[in-house]
């Protein structure tokens, strides 16, 4: 499968496991609930797990585990559900998570720019979207008023020079 990561289209072999499904490869993600229940055994397997967050999950519950996580997935059950934007930003800014944050699910092209700004660096859209056509959306705007999780120079800072 292909995804967008750090601005380019790459091959990706991460498996998103259902709660009863056993990992077959080295890279996989599990649900937040499964992570909490099987944390020890998943870590002991010596692989690089990821956790999928859905909107209602409390980040504080996994804050201590973030250093062990290869990636965190913020899921979009519906594109209009904007909680993932806050979750991603908290992961970066509050919890200092430096690994991959991947948006997955029902987000749309026009959300990509905002997602990058709140700290998402990988995109796995629901099937059918042409990734090539998505790439330009990462650069919809060249100027930004407000601070977010990205490290861009803000408009007021440009003015201050």
């Amino acid at each position: 499968m292909q995804i967008i990561k750090d601005g380019t289209i790459i091959h990706d072999d991460v498996q998103h496991l259902a709660d009863a499904e056993a990992p077959t490869g080295n890279r996989f993600t599990v649900s937040f609930e499964r992570w909490k229940a099987e944390r020890e055994s998943l870590l002991a397997a010596g692989c690089a797990p990821g956790v999928r967050l859905s909107s209602g999950n409390a980040l504080a519950d996994i804050a201590g585990d973030l250093p062990f996580l290869d990636l965190v997935v913020v899921e979009f059950p519906a594109f209009a559900d904007g909680r993932a934007f806050s979750l991603a930003r908290l992961l970066r800014e509050r919890y200092g998570y430096a690994g991959e944050i991947r948006a997955r699910g029902d987000f749309i092209r026009d959300q990509l720019y905002f997602l990058v700004r709140v700290g998402v660096n990988a995109f796995e859209p629901k099937g059918g979207l042409d990734l090539e056509k998505l790439l330009p959306a990462l650069k919809d705007f060249s100027v930004n008023y407000q601070a977010a999780a990205d490290d861009v120079e803000l408009i007021y800072q440009k003015r201050g020079k």
């Binding site: 594109f79 209009a80 559900d81 904007g82 934007f85 806050s86 930003r89 959300q111 720019y113 905002f114 997602l115 700004r117 709140v118 705007f141 930004n144 008023y145 407000q146 977010a148 408009i155 007021y156």
Partner: peptide, 14 residues
């Protein structure tokens, strides 16, 4: 106005 314009975190509120 400037802060809220295209605020990336708050474009899809409830």
């Amino acid at each position: 106005r400037q802060w809220s314009t295209l605020h990336p975190e708050f474009a899809f509120l409830p």
